[in-house]
Amino acid sequence: MNGILRHAKSALLTPLRRGGQQVVLTENFMGLGNLLYIAVWVAQAPDTRKMLETSNLAAWYPTFPRLRELTIQRTSMPFTAARIDSISTSFGRFGTDFAKTQLHDFCRDYLMTTTAPSTTDRLVINVRRGDYYTDPAARGHYAIDTEAFLRTALHHAQEQEPVHGIHVVSDGIEWCEERLQWLRDIAPLTFSRSTDTPADNLWTVAGARRILIMNSTFSYWAGYLHDVVHPGGESQVWAPRFFSRSQADHASWSLDPDWSIVESIPGGWDS
């Protein structure tokens, strides 16, 4: 009932809220990856566009202080500002909602720090675990056979260039240490520390010359930053075509078409 009343109120107020400013009503559950897609849109006209500040976004201000310029607190929203629903509005389609030049400009202007390309020539793998596998609803949408994907992607990466070292970064590093020891058969293997922060993980992936990422918006943003850190086409990014079963084609809309894409894995994405 509350939802119906909220939508009815919104419909009544919409004609009044056609002022010069637009505010994207971000949701509290949104993580960094989804929030940054909205931020790209806001950054195209920061004087007239804002996104609602959330605790998840504010937690990243120490890492990306300029993001604060793109946000507004609910108590500061002008009554006449046009409200934009962050769920029903698309922000993350590569080449449709944003161009590559806009994406890279945003990375340089709002996200880049003094991070330099890694001097260690190793393949860095970003393994997504977290709620993709612990939450039943999220698992049904996003989970894939991680090991099957890694074996397939590594095979292709080795065809592209020999792999002389592997470093695994993950939000579930204990699972990785238990299940991915077979990577030692390919190359010397190291794992990120359990004490590493999400920001540490993001920059470790972004700084590496060769990366293998998962179907995760966090991974995608590490890939976008990676391409800015490593301009000139000398970098390598491998990613799965699959993103979510909630989409008709299951395919990700956010992949850079210049990345190397794994189109399928043995047994299929639902295996």
Rank of each mutant, 00 (worst) to 15 (best):
T113G: 14
K100W: 10
R74E: 13
P257V: 08
P46K: 01
I4S: 11
W175C: 08
Y133T: 03
R245C: 07
V124K: 00
G19Q: 09
P117E: 02
R49W: 04
A222I: 00
P46R: 01
M51A: 11
R151H: 08
D135A: 13
T195L: 15
K9R: 10
Y110W: 00
L5T: 11
R193I: 08
A137P: 06
N2T: 11
W221Q: 00
L36W: 06
G20R: 11
E263Y: 03
P198E: 05
A58N: 01
W238E: 05
T80K: 15
H156Q: 14
K50W: 15
I144E: 02
K100E: 07
L212F: 04
S246P: 04
W259P: 02
A58R: 05
A116I: 09
G3C: 09
L5D: 09
G3R: 07
D131A: 03
Q247K: 14
S88L: 08
P65A: 04
Y142L: 14
R184G: 08
L67R: 05
D200K: 02
G19S: 11
A143S: 14
H230W: 03
P240Q: 03
V23P: 00
I87Q: 07
N34L: 08
R93Q: 13
Y61A: 06
G223K: 15
V24S: 11
E161T: 09
G268I: 15
D85Q: 00
G95H: 00
E263T: 08
A208F: 01
Q73Y: 09
T101L: 07
V40D: 05
R245Q: 14
I144Q: 01
S264R: 12
M1R: 12
R129N: 03
I72T: 09
L16M: 07
G165D: 04
A239F: 11
F191I: 03
F98Q: 01
I186F: 07
N126I: 00
T26D: 10
R128A: 10
A39W: 01
P15L: 07
I211M: 04
S55D: 14
P117D: 02
S76A: 13
F218Q: 00
I261H: 06
P257E: 09
G20W: 08
N215K: 10
W182L: 10
P136F: 05
M1Y: 05
R245M: 12
A58K: 04
A82C: 13
A157S: 06
W182Y: 15
N201S: 10
H167I: 00
V163E: 14
